[in-house]
C-alpha cells in the first residue's frame, strides 16, 4: 500500500510559543513612516534634558545656600575657599552640560531612526531606573512627586516607548543609506 501523497516530516509543535520570540527581530516594511513611539521617545529624552538644565541652573543659583546649609561651609568673597568652591561648581556644570549635550544628540539620532542611539538611551534609562529602585528598596530615598518621581517616570516612559515593536522596527528598517542624507 503506497501513500497517496508524500508526507512531510514536521516536528511536533509545542503547546506554547517560545518566549524567545519576544527577542525575534521584527520585519519592518521597506518604506516606513516614523511611528508615534519613536517620536514620543525622542521628545521624552528632550524633556529629560530640559529637566537636567533646570537642575543645573538651580544648582548654580542656590550654590552658596547649598554650601551653607548642607555642608556647613561659609565662604568669604575673595578668598582661596571662594575660588575652590567656584571651581567645583564649574566642573559640575561643565560635566553636566556635556552629558546633556550628548543626551540631546542621542535624542536627535533616535528621531532619525538610529538603532545604536536607541539602544544607548534605553541602556541609560535601565541603569537609572534600577538605581532608583535600589535606593527606594534600601530605604534611603522615598520616591514622591517632590523628589524623583518626575525623572523616574520620564525614564520609564522613554524605555516603554523605545522598546516598543514599532520603534524597534523603525530603527531596524532596511535602508540603502542613512536617512539624514535622504532628500
Amino acid at each position: 500500500m503506497s501513500a497517496p501523497f508524500e508526507r512531510v516530516n514536521v516536528e511536533k509543535r509545542p503547546a506554547y510559543e517560545s518566549p524567545a520570540s519576544l527577542a525575534r527581530p521584527v520585519t519592518p516594511p521597506t518604506s516606513m513612516r516614523r511611528p508615534a513611539a519613536t517620536a514620543v521617545g525622542s521628545v521624552l529624552v528632550v524633556l529629560r534634558v530640559i529637566a537636567g538644565i533646570v537642575w543645573l541652573v538651580s544648582l548654580w543659583a542656590f550654590w552658596d545656600e547649598l554650601l551653607r546649609e548642607q555642608l556647613d561651609i561659609t565662604v568669604d568673597p575673595g578668598t582661596d575657599e571662594q575660588a575652590a568652591t567656584d571651581a567645583v561648581l564649574a566642573i559640575i556644570l561643565v560635566f553636566g552640560a556635556i552629558v546633556l549635550v550628548v543626551e540631546l544628540g542621542l535624542a536627535v539620532l533616535v528621531w532619525f531612526g538610529s538603532n545604536w542611539a536607541r539602544i544607548a538611551v534605553m541602556l541609560f534609562a535601565t541603569i537609572s531606573i534600577t538605581s532608583s529602585w535600589v535606593e527606594s528598596v534600601a530605604g534611603n530615598a522615598e520616591i514622591t512627586l517632590r523628589t524623583t518621581l518626575v525623572t523616574l517616570a520620564l525614564d520609564i516612559l522613554v524605555l516603554l516607548a523605545l522598546s516598543s515593536r514599532n520603534a524597534r522596527a523603525y530603527a531596524r528598517r532596511p535602508r540603502q543609506r542613512v536617512i539624514l542624507h535622504r532628500k
Binding site: 527581530p25 524605555l159 523605545l162
Partner: peptide
Amino acid sequence: ASMLDGFFFVFA
C-alpha cells in the same frame, strides 16, 4: 542586539 531588545521589552 535582538536579545537586548527582548530584555528591554520585558524590563520596560
